[in-house]
Write a protein that binds this DNA or RNA. Sequence first.
DNA 1: TCAATATCTGAACAGACGTTCAGATCAACC
DNA 2: GGTTGATCTGAACGTCTGTTCAGATATTGA
Lengths: 195, 195
Amino acid sequence: MARTQGSHAGITGPRIRDAALRLFAEHGFAAVSMRQIASTVGLQAGALYNYTPDKQALLFSLMKEHMDDLLGDLAHLPSHDSPLARLEAFVRFHIAFHLERPELVFIAYMELRNLTPENFAVIEGLRRDYENALERILSDGVASGSFDVPDTKLATLAVIAMLTGVTTWYRPDGRLSIPEVQNLYWDMVRKSVSA
Amino acid sequence: MARTQGSHAGITGPRIRDAALRLFAEHGFAAVSMRQIASTVGLQAGALYNYTPDKQALLFSLMKEHMDDLLGDLAHLPSHDSPLARLEAFVRFHIAFHLERPELVFIAYMELRNLTPENFAVIEGLRRDYENALERILSDGVASGSFDVPDTKLATLAVIAMLTGVTTWYRPDGRLSIPEVQNLYWDMVRKSVSA
DNA sequence: TCAATATCTGAACAGACGTTCAGATCAACC
DNA sequence: GGTTGATCTGAACGTCTGTTCAGATATTGA
């Protein structure tokens, strides 16, 4: 028997994903060629096809893994505290998670229209799951009387849009630290849903 | 002398812009070809160059006009009312304006990276002007004691992100009317900045 | 009716695109 | 050391890209 695994496969694969991630985020999926990705990694374009069946699968793989990470980490938040405590945990988590991987956030948001219909449906379903987690918190808070939210569906989308927007302006060397950003957003969210 | 204006120029020009608008919004600037735009209008690709010097100018023209409209309409809002009244007017205006032209909003937001650096600087400057108008309202409210906003810059971006998000889910035949949407968002914004 | 000119076609340009594949290269196991 | 198979190159494929332009067509003012 020969080797069971290629010498570079364990390294080249992630490097390709990383290069694709950066290039897609900077120029957009449609504007990036397989040759650019290969060149960034130091390969010829043909070699990429040892790691992905095609360009579309590369995009989908990045987005799917991102959503799985998001939902996986979300599941670790305490789920039996008060709605207010759970909302605060959600807000702080959402900001920290998104600020840790701005390129992935950008791609998962901007490149939805470049997915095939089947792939789009998968990502959209995961996104819906995430939104539902927040809506559950808001509904529970309304039921217990701690929140005043006339329309939990709209409030869910409003809060997520507001929080995700942080990735468009936050800079690690900027005026505010992540905890400060979390505090400021949490202050606004808390008041916006307060009874 | 011959005719001073071409027979179709007054019609073809807007039709090209309209087709480009729709196609850019649906597939993205980089994924749309000049031949697709021409075909939508019923022309050959070469004819487009009677109306735009190149593809980039077509994109910039759409975005520039959009931002000019936005700032032009914004200027008509009352500017001497109380900060609370001005904030309410801003919120309702922003939602109505954006829901009236979802494709332009989408393009102006998603295709920034496909602008040349010079064109990007122009659009970014106009965007900054718009944000400054909101920040002024918040600052005035803080000064007069009617708002409690620890960081007006962050709050500005947070409110705009929240409001602009409406374009991602609102549907004219959906559950909520535009006035209902305006009321719900205004309720959240008002509380989030309240003293 | 005729000349002037705005508008458009259709072909061409040089290059880039995603993808395939035969053959070269290389590392790991026997 | 030889064999196996993973990995990669380099060329090729058919097609598409933005843009240009000579010539055809259409429309108007004189």
